[in-house]
Nucleic acid binder design. Structure first.
Length: 245
DNA sequence: TCCAATGTTTCGCC
DNA sequence: GGGCGAAACATTGG
């Protein structure tokens, strides 16, 4: 379901129809105070990075979709027990395979919104400064660091590195100021494109290297291998993304 | 049938 | 107590 940051922004928009409506029923396999949830009205739906936030008057629910999580509205999956199922105004919402936690309702104070590339509060200088603090790290690890680029997942990482023309195992110290700025800027702008493409159902066809056999731009064979300390797979084109600039 | 993979938390060891 | 790595969790498509 590709639940990286932009997908949660889309989900939050989809949930706007449920705002200020009462939860009529709350069930599911997750250990949550279902009786308490039932009495509440949904006051705010938003996201911070990969955290999907349902905010009620006296508490909030933080939903993380991890690798395989998904949600459905009025179309339950067959033979699947949802972690959480909510009935709101006759609609049924199902959350599957996700980690749900009760948190305080003052979510503004719980997150640094300037870190989320999908947030209005996101700032470029802050990201640049944070990256520069770890000169020995690989850019592939930096991009996946939720402390710096919350919202960015492995799909976005690979595509951002492509557009920034950077090899995944470029060290931060090897970046000059303009390529560092270019990388950070690309995160923000790719987030916006991801959002638009996903909404239009055009996400996969815009991937240039992620899970591709050949580079979508130059046709060169794509390299797929585990990179960085995080040991996540990177997909990259050695022709478009040479190791040194 | 098997295995990797859109990700994070928890546990145990130094 | 911090830092690190391994394991756990969970689902699906190739």
């Amino acid at each position: 379901m590709a639940m990286e940051g932009p997908s949660l922004v889309i989900a939050a928009e989809e949930f706007e129809q449920f705002l200020n409506l009462k939860i009529q029923k709350a069930t599911g396999s997750s250990a949550l105070p279902m009786a308490k949830i039932k009495k509440e009205q949904l006051r705010l739906v938003t996201s911070w990075g990969k955290h999907f936030l349902l905010v009620f008057d006296s508490f909030a629910l933080r939903i993380h979709f991890l690798m395989f999580g998904s949600y459905r509205i009025n179309r339950p999956r067959e033979n699947r027990v949802p972690k959480l199922q909510l009935r709101i105004a006759g609609d049924e919402i199902y959350f599957y395979s996700c980690a749900i936690k009760e948190v305080a309702s003052d979510i503004e104070g719980q997150y640094d919104w300037s870190r989320d590339i999908m947030s209005k509060a996101w700032t470029m200088p802050k990201a640049c400064r944070k990256i520069a603090e770890t000169p020995r790290r690989f850019v592939c690890d930096v991009l996946m660091d939720q402390e710096i680029f919350s919202s960015v997942g492995n799909i976005m990482k690979n595509e951002i590195l492509y557009h920034a023309h950077l090899h995944p195992e470029t060290k931060v110290s090897e970046l000059d100021v303009s390529s560092l700025k270019g990388l950070v800027k690309e995160c923000r702008s790719y987030g916006k494109r991801f959002y638009m493409w996903k909404k239009a159902g055009l996400l996969n066809r815009n991937w240039i290297v992620f899970r591709k056999k050949i580079c979508g731009v130059c046709g060169h064979r794509v390299t797929n291998r585990v990179t960085g300390r995080m040991e996540r797979v990177s997909h990259y084109c050695t022709r478009c993304q040479p190791r040194f600039k």
